[in-house]
Nucleic acid binder design. Structure first.
Length: 592
RNA sequence: GGGGGCGUAGUGUAGCGGUUAACAUGCCGGCCUGUCAAGCCGGAGAUCGCGGGUUCGAAUCCCGUCGCUCCCGCCA
């Protein structure tokens, strides 16, 4: 090794020892006859003192040294003089008095600061990702990611799970997201697909009798990006045999709880994890992935609103649609301008306008729609909303879907404005009892609300024939801080049920056999009841790291245009490569 | 596919019809033996993303385009 210690470990107890350190020059302070270098490696920073008197050769070299040069220094660990300790540094009680300094590699001036946390344009960070990753903040994110994955591996291994790898080259399944396709050289005109998840393979591992499987699995989906969505991402993929919903929930709840406690210093605010039915989540929070770090719950005011003279409300209710609201504490003083901003936000979520009531300090209601309410009705609204003087009530009156979208959007907006979403807190909750299907009006068929292997509630089996919309799925989602962090289900293990579901989602029998014949066949060879779940590692680590997007916890992420700006991917392929793959591109032809 | 934001010295920002294009930091040179976001002195560094238009005059207004980003659609 070119070093005897790392830059984060030297303490007062090391004083007097001769050590060698190596790393990058974080900062340098040339004092003339005395040069200080802050030497950085993955473990920390140690101050290096180079004295002209005692080490003239090293001192001469140190004068030339610049940021991010790679150097090796040998010297004696000494206690800093009284009053010269740096309490901001774990190694701040000591410094290294250098006798020998060697430049291992010089460095150009970096295109942005490594030694300073300053916003840098994303494109520049991505182009020089290896420098971006050198920043201590990024290093700590990736180390956290490692610790999370290590914890998971240990936790599951201790509980009898086996980690098994599944292929990256698999078969296209157009039912889900758009596939990434890989042309086959050996089979002209045919394609592999990269897995959107190892769903089928892990179920087949249950058929194979492994009973408890997991994998830190890379998944690929060719859909447009978001801050929490990359074209390739990592899931903890997990499947268990002979289990019911409770078993999977217990396992994951225990794992997440201990993970947060042992690997992070975040505060777990919901324990045990609350369980909300899908319907309840929508009613109380307007979303199936609620942020439970704060209240601002939705209240239903349809009964009162329907009785008022306010046409918008009355008409909404008589059409069978809801009028709901959230009560925002302390915002009763909002100006016309501020309320206008909120209305604009409500409109982007689909609202046609935004009705509001501000409760003044004396209890009076200030509102453009107050005149359509009787005194009793006003009182009832205020009471039902739980509003007190100084509060602001924001209404949504529309179809069920729009009301949910609008109030969910407003709830998150107001939480952000009031700083209610504490980044140090972690609030998990389970969402259960999803409908198995959603009606797809465009295609005139049912779509699976999770995926096509999700089992119906056994007691709802009969409804598959009579009323598919009423069938509840044995599906469960884990939400955390407003993100969907995991989704899973108990699976169908019976060929007849699986075929029935294929039929309901409009999958032609021949097509079903071509695409999923191997699954149907497998189900006939003694398939145990089984189920599983797949937490998204990137999102989980993002939340635990307190980062706003998953690029911050992925070493080499893609941009929103799915490009790698460092390597320049995607790129054109040689004509020869294309010929071997029996591929001809049509770029340009479409534009004509 | 659609909507919003951003693009000005290496970096982060200001300027938003007429400025010598400003500030901070970094960079280069000098001074300095207790600094640690070191300090002090001096210096270099910008075809204002790119292309076109409006105007006597454009970083500034308009159109297009490229890149990054947030959101809708999409994400079984």
């Amino acid at each position: 090794m070119l070093k005897t210690h790392n830059c984060g470990e030297l303490r007062a107890t090391h004083a007097g020892q001769q050590v060698t350190l190596a790393g990058w020059v974080h900062r340098w302070r040339d004092q003339g006859g005395l040069v200080f270098l802050d030497l950085r490696d993955r473990w920390g920073i140690t101050q290096i003192k180079v004295d002209q008197q005692t080490a003239p050769d090293a001192h001469a070299l140190a004068k030339e040294v610049r940021s991010e040069w790679v150097i090796q220094v040998t010297g004696t660990v000494i206690l800093r003089p009284d009053g010269m300790q740096n309490p901001d540094l774990p190694t701040g009680d000591v410094e290294l008095a250098v006798s020998e300094l060697k430049v291992l590699n010089r460095a150009k001036t970096p295109p942005f600061y490594i030694n300073k946390d300053e916003k840098v344009e994303e494109a520049l960070r991505m182009r020089y990702r290896y420098l971006d990753l050198r920043r201590p903040a990024m290093q700590s994110n990736l180390v956290l990611r490692h610790n999370v994955i290590r914890f998971i591996r240990n936790y599951l291994s201790e509980r009898g799970f086996v980690e098994i790898e599944t292929p990256i080259l698999f078969k296209t399944t157009p039912e889900g997201a758009r596939d990434y396709l890989v042309p086959s050289r050996v089979h002209p005109g045919k394609f592999y697909a990269l897995p959107q998840s190892p769903q089928q393979l892990k179920q087949l591992l249950m058929v194979a009798g492994y009973e408890r499987y997991f994998q830190i699995a890379r998944c690929f989906r060719d859909e447009d990006q978001r801050g929490d969505r990359q074209p390739e991402f990592t899931q903890l993929d997990l499947e268990m045999s002979f289990v019911e919903r409770e078993d999977v929930l217990d396992l994951i709840e225990g794992m997440m709880t201990r993970l947060v406690e042992e690997v992070t210093d975040r505060e777990l605010v919901t324990r045990p994890f609350p369980r909300l039915s899908h319907a309840e989540a929508l009613a109380r929070y307007g979303t199936d992935k609620p942020d439970l770090r704060y209240g601002l719950e939705i209240v239903d005011l349809s009964a009162i609103a329907g009785q008022t003279e306010f046409r918008v409300f009355a008409d909404t209710v008589s059409a069978g649609n809801p009028v709901r609201a959230i009560c925002v504490p302390g915002c009763g003083t909002y100006s016309r301008k501020q309320l206008g901003e909120l209305e604009e936000i409500a409109r982007t979520a689909g609202a046609k306008g935004l009705a509001w009531m501000a409760i003044e300090e004396n209890g009076d209601v200030r509102s453009p729609i107050a005149k359509f309410f009787s005194e009793d009705q006003l009182k009832a609204v205020v009471e039902r909303a739980g509003a007190t003087p100084g509060d602001l009530i924001l209404f949504a009156a529309d179809t069920e879907t729009v009301v949910c979208d609008v109030l969910d959007t407003l709830r998150r907006e107001m939480a952000a404005r009031l700083d209610l979403a504490d980044p140090n807190k972690v609030a998990f909750c389970w969402v259960i009892d999803f409908p198995l299907f959603e009606w797809n009006a465009d295609e005139n068929r049912w779509d699976p609300s999770h995926h096509l292997f999700t089992a119906p509630m056994w007691e709802d089996l009969a409804l598959l024939d009579s009323d598919p919309g009423k069938v509840r799925g044995q599906q469960y989602d884990l939400a955390c801080n407003g993100y969907e962090i995991a989704g899973g289900s108990i699976r169908i293990h019976d060929r007849a049920v699986q075929e029935k579901v294929f039929g309901l989602i409009g999958l032609d029998e021949a097509v079903a056999r071509e695409r999923f014949g191997h699954m149907l066949e497998a189900f006939e060879f003694g398939t145990p009841p089984h189920g599983g779940i797949a937490p998204g590692i990137d999102r989980l680590v993002m939340l635990l790291a307190g980062e706003p997007n998953i690029r911050e916890v992925i070493a080499f992420p893609k941009t929103q245009q799915a490009a790698d700006l460092m390597a320049g991917a995607p790129s054109e392929a040689d004509l020869k490569q294309l010929e071997e793959l029996h591929i001809r591109t049509v770029v340009g032809e479409n534009e004509r």
